[in-house]
Amino acid sequence: MLAVEMAKAAHRWRTWVMAAAFIAIPVLIVTALLLSTDRPEPGEGPPFLTLVQVNGVFASLVGITTIQPFFLPLAAGLLAGDAIAGESQAGTLRYLLARPVGRTRLVVAKYASVMILVGGAVVLVGLTGLAVGGAAYGLGPLPTLSGATLPVGVALARVVLAGMYVTAGMAGLVAIGLFISTLTDSGPGATVATVGIYIVMQILGALSALRIIHPYLLSHYSLAFTGLFRSPVALDEVMTGLVAYAFYVAVFLGGAVAVFRRKDVTS
């Protein structure tokens, strides 16, 4: 079923439009820096932006941190929200279930396929950033936020880990999207609800008066991966983030399976 989902995605225009948009992000960032006569000020733009002109490896990181707060959740919400509800709306869900595809298997395959696509988006941005950043500014040892320097190989490994963490950061949101997707027959409705929930979490996370609930918000841990670029590596928040993501996945993916296993398919 997962292979079918991936093959279907490969035949959809939206997959390739999203891929092109993700590729464009690091290209635009590096192009803008190349065309700009002024160096970005510290604190301006996404994290690591000021360092791209020092080392092309940072273009990769800047690309990932740029997609992380909005573009990636948007894509994840679109794919996850549409996963079950879109099939239901199109009428293909009843034919899949009558084939028969097991309900749990369908939810899990949908979840895995969305996560693969989200991971693919991060990989695309990372690789494109590396290619254009390297071409424009060269690839060299990476200065960390703590002042030490990492050899190129170690630096690239940290970038890969950062990409994996950002992908994992979407796992909870995709589970929420899939859960909502089992509750409705409207793909767009489920997408809007999923993205809306993430935006609300970000807004709540920005309100210091609500500090007490911040540790429970998905978006709270999204920049924890910057700890990977300290020396020594600061893993505490990364680990807490991963636990939080796992909790969201367990609750909402479990909820999606539970709801879908007993759902009357009338569309």
Binding site: K8, H11, A90, G91, T92, R94, Y95, A98
Partner: peptide, 12 residues
């Protein structure tokens, strides 16, 4: 089975 109107992935 054909259940009510047939439904397909239109992009395929």
């Amino acid at each position: 089975a054909v259940v009510e109107e047939p439904a397909f992935w239109g992009y395929l």
